[in-house]
């Protein structure tokens, strides 16, 4: 079981639906391996349910248009669109690494195969393109670190970096991280992770840059498509 968890506010954002697409992938992957955090998220979802329930008074709720329920009734008996199996379903996107479903599916849905780039000193990185989101300062990638190699000392310039171990392990001044563990690096942390000897370390990393805040609305809502 993982011993290094995402910070509680990250779990709350996941439960509330306020996390970025990349953070959703990392948190969902951690939850796949961490019953403790799943429990916390269940509680945080209960809070969402309670808040929805308490939107009770007349000023709070917004009436549906007349006829909305009748329109819905007509749809109840329509057959549900069957999920289509994709051609890529049998392909293993990252052979040799046991990927939790949220990461495996993200990789299977990529339009191009992963491109590994050499970052020097025994480190390779493959960037994972993200669904469109207002916060374009977020990056997600897979890291492959050769046994015993160190990632260069770095800070995060106003943002944060979350790293989840998928295979192998690494250590930094805060401890030892193995499969399922999540390390959070921020402004204050100058960290220098070193991969364990004997096994290649594979991690999912989500880096949030310095948020350039430009307007009052959190998400771009004109992205909603009428169907």
């Amino acid at each position: 079981m993982p011993v290094h968890h995402p910070e509680p506010e990250r779990l709350m954002e996941y439960a509330a639906g306020a996390a970025s697409p990349a953070m959703d992938v990392l948190i969902a992957a951690h939850l796949s391996l961490c019953p403790t955090c799943r429990k916390t998220v269940e509680r945080l979802e209960r809070m969402g349910g309670h808040m929805l329930e308490s939107l009770g008074s007349d000023e709070d709720v917004v009436s549906m248009s007349p006829g909305a329920f009748d329109a819905l009734l007509e749809k109840l008996d329509l057959p549900e669109e069957a999920p289509q199996a994709a051609a890529g379903d049998e392909i293993d996107p990252l052979p040799g690494v046991d990927l939790p479903a949220p990461i495996r599916e993200t990789l299977r849905n990529l339009e191009r195969p992963l491109e590994w780039r050499n970052r020097g000193k025994g480190i390779e990185e493959a960037e994972i393109p993200l669904p469109v989101d207002v916060d374009d300062s977020v990056r997600m990638s897979l890291l492959r670190i050769q046994p015993g190699r160190a990632v260069l000392e770095h800070t995060h310039d106003g943002g944060e970096e979350l790293t989840m171990v998928l295979a192998g392990g690494f250590s930094d001044e805060h401890g030892h991280y193995v499969r399922g563990d999540v390390q959070t690096g921020d402004d204050e942390l100058i960290h220098k992770p070193i991969a364990d000897e004997g096994e290649v370390c594979v991690c999912l990393a989500v880096v949030e840059g310095n948020l350039r805040f430009t307007g009052p609305v959190g998400r771009v809502l004109n992205l909603f498509m009428r169907t």
Partner: peptide, 22 residues
């Protein structure tokens, strides 16, 4: 979220062989 992203929001799947039951 699915409507905004036009992609399914990732969630843990208990049928996933990697899933760690409690």
């Amino acid at each position: 979220i699915d409507a905004i992203r036009r992609a399914k929001r990732p969630e843990p799947d208990m049928n996933d062989p990697s899933f760690m039951p409690e």
